[in-house]
């Protein structure tokens, strides 16, 4: 049965996933035009994970993100103009051009930060959860990280502490199969990463990360448990990045046909095919988002760079 709630959610999911898709396409364009300094790690193909997961949170909750963080930030409601300006290194960016793609932070949206160190954000997310418990707030932290971060030492240290102390955190492993060029199946014996939850005595499961409703549902359950003081959950979301590790990586290490196979599981097309939304509704959403994105791009492109004096501020705060 199609309830109003389901329809409302579908509209929200569609809007957010399409917003991420379009944003990332434009980041790629800026890169190709030589207007984006450095690199960016695109979230194309993984939109359902961030979208479904963040929809299960309250405004006061926190998320910890990764080097592939644009999707998480957009799903959390970060300002597209300030994000794009940051990616182009402009003064109007979230970090005045001092962070760039991999380090966008927006604490006003509960975003603890994207993070350039694989796994580096996991203990920080656990610390936010510790802080919630200590300060007796009812906030929950979602810790996003990739399959490869689960092989970093801090993954183990962090999940262990969160489990030992029933901290209100949900670990969302986005398994997109590759750590740069290395297939996760070549560097682990047990490929189902959620099974690691067993070692920590916490619930763990693997879900279809391209099914936005499934992500929303499962993260929602985990968030409820965490909020009730019942400790962390580990959710592995199976998904795929359509592009290489970063813009400019042709992804030659991938198997023939693999990209096409995953593109056939496009989370946005999949939501359209569920026919919860009418074609005129989806096209209206797309038109509105296209406009937002165009506006964010124009804003970022036209914004000035900061003066050199900006390089010397914010090393310390008062």
């Amino acid at each position: 049965m199609r309830t109003n709630r389901q329809k409302e959610l579908a509209g929200h999911f569609y809007r957010v996933m399409y917003r991420i898709r379009r944003f990332e396409e434009e980041v790629f364009e800026f890169y190709k035009r030589g207007l984006m300094p450095g690199l960016a790690h695109l979230y194309l193909g993984q939109e359902a994970v961030a979208t479904g997961a963040c929809a299960a949170l309250k405004a006061s909750d926190y998320i910890g993100s990764t080097h592939r963080g644009h999707g998480h930030l957009i799903a959390r409601g970060a300002d597209l103009r300030r994000m794009m300006a940051e990616i182009l290194g402009k003064a109007a960016g979230y970090s005045k051009g001092k962070g760039g793609s991999m380090h966008i932070m927006a604490l006003d949206r509960g975003i603890l930060g994207a993070n350039g160190i694989v796994g580096g954000g996991i203990p920080i997310a656990v610390g936010a959860a510790y802080s919630s418990k200590l300060r007796k707030t009812d906030t929950v932290t979602l810790s996003f990280f990739g399959d490869s971060a689960s092989n970093e030492g801090v993954f183990h240290e962090s999940v262990n502490m969160a489990a030992a102390w029933d901290l209100p955190v949900v670990f969302v492993i986005e398994n997109n199969l590759y750590g740069i060029s290395v297939d996760i199946r070549n560097v682990t014996r047990e490929h189902q990463l959620s099974k690691r939850a067993l070692a920590y005595g916490i619930p763990g499961s693997t879900i279809d990360g391209n099914d936005v409703f499934a992500v929303y549902r499962e993260v929602g359950k985990a968030v409820d448990l965490a909020r009730k003081g019942k400790g962390p959950t580990m959710l592995e979301c199976l998904t795929y990045r359509w592009q290489g590790h970063h813009v400019g990586d042709p992804g030659v290490y991938r198997q023939e046909g693999e990209v096409a196979e995953w593109k056939a599981r496009d989370p946005i097309a999949r939501l359209e095919n569920e026919k919860i939304l009418q074609p005129e509704e989806t096209s209206a959403i797309r038109a509105a988002v296209d406009e937002e994105i165009a506006e964010a791009c124009a804003f970022a492109e036209e914004s000035p760079y900061a003066g050199i004096e900006e390089a010397f501020t914010d090393v310390f705060v008062e």
Binding site: L107, A125, M161
Partner: peptide, 27 residues
């Protein structure tokens, strides 16, 4: 909670401190 015996996880506890510090605590 305010005087916490930790596991032997130096990176983990410093990271926990960072996360707590940016969300309102003084660890």
């Amino acid at each position: 909670l305010r005087c916490k015996d930790s596991p032997i996880s130096e990176a983990g506890i410093v990271g926990l401190g960072v996360g707590a510090a940016i969300t309102g605590c003084r660890p």
